[in-house]
Simulated scan of single mutants.
Amino acid sequence: MSLAPFHLAIPVDDLAAARDFYGKLLGFAEGRSDTRWIDWNFGGHQVVTHQVDGARPRAGSNPVDGHEVPVPHFGLVLPVPEFQRLAERLTAAGTEFVIEPHVRFQGEPGEQWTMFFLDPAGNALEFKAFAAPGRLFAV
């Protein structure tokens, strides 16, 4: 199977806040947009923030390596230097992490840097990095 960019549509309740978060804080390029949605170049993939009025339910969680991982969530696997730069930028911006940047599964085949945080609408994001990228699916 050949890999192609994925498309993900997520609800937000404030497009201006989404524009600040995804465009300015995370640094993703804005694509097409309209009055109720914005396309983002999310590391070569298309994430679309759609304006949805009303309250959003809180995500659940699942225990993983001693932390409560928010479910559902989405994000990117980055090279370690990019992960570190993003973690520093988020920390400097005062981001409230659900799970602080740290190394998970240390000494195991799936050892990885990971961090979780919420966008302004409460959507959970995970960014991770592997020192050995070929170990992404290691068991």
Rank of each mutant, 00 (worst) to 15 (best):
A17D: 01
A17T: 00
A17E: 09
A18H: 02
A18Y: 05
A18Q: 02
A18N: 02
D20E: 10
D20P: 00
F21R: 00
Y22I: 05
Y22N: 02
G23L: 05
G23R: 01
G23K: 04
K24S: 12
K24G: 04
K24W: 04
L26D: 06
G27V: 07
G27M: 06
F28M: 08
A29D: 14
A29E: 15
A29H: 06
A29C: 07
E30K: 12
E30M: 12
G31Q: 09
R32L: 13
S33E: 08
S33K: 10
S33C: 12
D34V: 04
D34T: 13
R36K: 11
W37R: 11
W37M: 13
I38Y: 01
I38D: 06
I38M: 03
W40M: 04
N41V: 02
N41S: 14
N41P: 00
F42W: 01
F42Y: 08
G43N: 04
G43S: 06
G43A: 08
G44D: 07
G44L: 12
G44N: 08
G44P: 05
H45A: 10
Q46V: 14
Q46A: 12
Q46K: 14
V47T: 02
V47F: 04
V47E: 03
V48D: 00
V48E: 05
H50M: 14
H50K: 14
H50W: 13
Q51C: 02
Q51L: 15
G54F: 06
G54I: 05
A55S: 11
A55K: 10
A55R: 09
P57I: 09
P57E: 12
A59D: 01
A59G: 15
G60A: 15
G60R: 05
S61M: 06
S61E: 04
N62F: 14
N62R: 12
N62M: 15
N62E: 12
P63T: 04
P63A: 10
D65K: 03
G66N: 07
